[in-house]
C-alpha cells in the first residue's frame, strides 16, 4: 500500500485541523462581541453588580436566553448538512476509485502510470476517468472528464468506460471509437436523472499507440497532451479540435485524428483540467507544463507521484475539482 504524505488531500488530520481553524475565530468573535455589549451595559448601569437588575438588564438577559438556543440549533443543523454532503462526496470519490481499475504497469513496449485525486472542498468528486486497452490495432488510451457531480458523474463515467472498453477492441479507427462514445453518451448520459447540470457532456482524449513510432490522438474538447522528448516538454494542440463527447451534433464538428511522432524514450502526459485549473491561496494557477519539465528526467513512477504531490502542495490539500493523470512512456528495444 502506498504511504500517504503528511498534508495531502487524503490525510484525516488535515480535516480536523481545518474544522478547528474555522470554528476558533467564530467562537472568538462571539466572545468578543458579548464582552463588548456587556461592558457597555455594565458601564451604563454604573456597577457590574447591578447587571442582573433593572428593566434593561432583564430585557438583555431574556434576549440572550432566547437567541443562544436558536444559534446553537442553527449551527447544529448546518454542521449536520455539511457532514451529509461530505459523506455523499466521499461515497462518490470511493465509487470513482473503484471504477478506475488499476492500469497494467506495462503493455508491450509501453510503460503506463495513472493517478487520480478526488476533490476535497466542494461536492465535485467523480467524473474524471482513464483507462488503457490493448487492442488488435495498438494500445488505446482514454482520459476524460464528465461534466456532472457526485454519483451522477460516477454513473456517466461508468457508461463511457464501458463503451470505450468495447469499442477499443472492435473498431478499426480511433475516430470510430470516438463515434461510438458519442452515440453511447447521447443515449445514456443525456438521460441520466438529476437537474444540477444542465449540460451533459464529457471531454475526452483518445490516444492510439501502434507499434510504429507514432501516436494518434482524437481531441474531444479535452486539455492537450504533453509530449516529453529529450527532457523538453511540448504541448500538442490539435489542428482540428473536436467537440466534447455528447455535443458533436450540436457543434457540427466531427472527430479528426491527429498524428504525433512518438519514438522510444519519449513520454506522453495526459491529464484532466483538475491539474491545470488548480489554484493556490493567492489565485495563481499551477504551472503544470513547467512542473512536468522539471520532472522530465525522473522515472515514470516518480514523475506521476511528483506531479500529484505538486498539485497537493500547490492547493494546500484543498482540491476543488477532481484530477486525473495518465503518463505513458515508450520503452526502447
Amino acid at each position: 500500500m502506498r504511504k500517504l504524505m503528511p498534508g495531502t488531500a487524503e490525510h484525516p488530520a488535515g480535516h480536523t485541523r481545518t474544522r478547528c481553524a474555522l470554528l476558533l475565530p467564530r467562537a472568538l468573535f462571539v466572545l468578543a462581541f458579548a464582552l463588548f455589549v456587556l461592558a457597555i451595559v455594565a458601564v451604563s448601569i454604573g456597577s457590574p453588580n447591578r447587571l442582573t437588575t433593572g428593566p434593561v438588564s432583564e430585557a438583555a438577559v431574556c434576549t440572550a436566553l432566547a437567541v443562544a438556543p436558536v444559534a446553537v440549533v442553527g449551527e447544529a443543523v448546518r454542521q449536520r448538512r455539511r457532514r451529509a454532503l461530505n459523506r455523499a462526496d466521499t461515497s462518490a470519490a470511493t465509487a470513482q476509485r473503484v471504477l478506475l481499475r488499476p492500469l497494467p504497469g506495462r503493455i508491450g513496449d509501453l510503460r503506463l502510470r495513472g493517478t487520480y485525486l478526488p476533490a476535497r472542498t466542494a461536492p465535485r468528486s467523480g467524473g474524471d476517468l482513464y483507462d488503457a486497452v490493448r487492442s488488435p490495432y495498438g494500445t488505446r488510451l482514454l482520459i476524460g472528464d464528465v461534466r456532472a457531480k457526485g454519483m451522477l458523474a460516477v454513473e456517466a463515467s461508468a457508461v463511457l468506460l464501458r463503451a470505450f472498453r468495447e469499442a477499443a477492441y472492435e473498431e478499426e479507427t480511433l475516430s470510430e471509437v470516438a463515434r461510438r462514445l458519442e452515440g453511447d453518451a447521447r443515449r445514456h448520459i443525456a438521460r441520466l436523472p438529476g437537474a444540477e447540470t444542465p449540460e451533459r457532456f464529457a471531454t475526452a482524449l483518445l490516444v492510439e499507440i501502434p507499434s510504429g513510432p507514432v501516436a494518434r490522438v482524437v481531441h474531444c474538447g479535452h486539455p492537450e497532451p504533453l509530449l516529453v522528448r529529450d527532457g523538453r516538454v511540448r504541448v500538442c494542440p490539435p489542428e482540428r479540435p473536436g467537440a466534447p463527447i455528447g455535443m458533436a451534433d450540436l457543434v457540427g464538428a466531427g472527430h479528426a485524428v491527429h498524428t504525433l511522432p512518438f519514438r522510444a524514450g519519449e513520454r506522453l502526459v495526459l491529464y484532466t483540467d483538475g491539474f491545470t485549473e488548480a489554484r493556490d491561496a493567492a489565485g495563481r494557477f499551477l504551472p503544470f507544463a513547467e512542473r512536468v519539465a522539471e520532472r522530465a528526467a525522473a522515472p515514470l513512477d516518480d514523475l506521476a507521484d511528483g506531479l500529484r504531490a505538486d498539485l497537493v502542495r500547490h492547493t494546500g490539500g484543498e482540491l476543488r475539482d477532481d484530477a486525473a493523470l495518465l503518463a505513458v512512456e515508450r520503452v526502447p528495444g
Binding site: 457532456f201 474538447g221 479540435p241 467537440a243 455535443m247 457543434v251 485549473e277
Partner: peptide
C-alpha cells in the same frame, strides 16, 4: 454559460474550427 474565469468552455476549440 461556462464563462466563469479560468479555462473556457470545452466546446470553444471546436466552435472556432466550425
Amino acid at each position: 454559460r461556462g464563462c466563469r474565469g479560468g479555462s473556457p468552455h470545452p466546446v470553444l476549440p471546436a466552435t472556432r474550427r466550425v
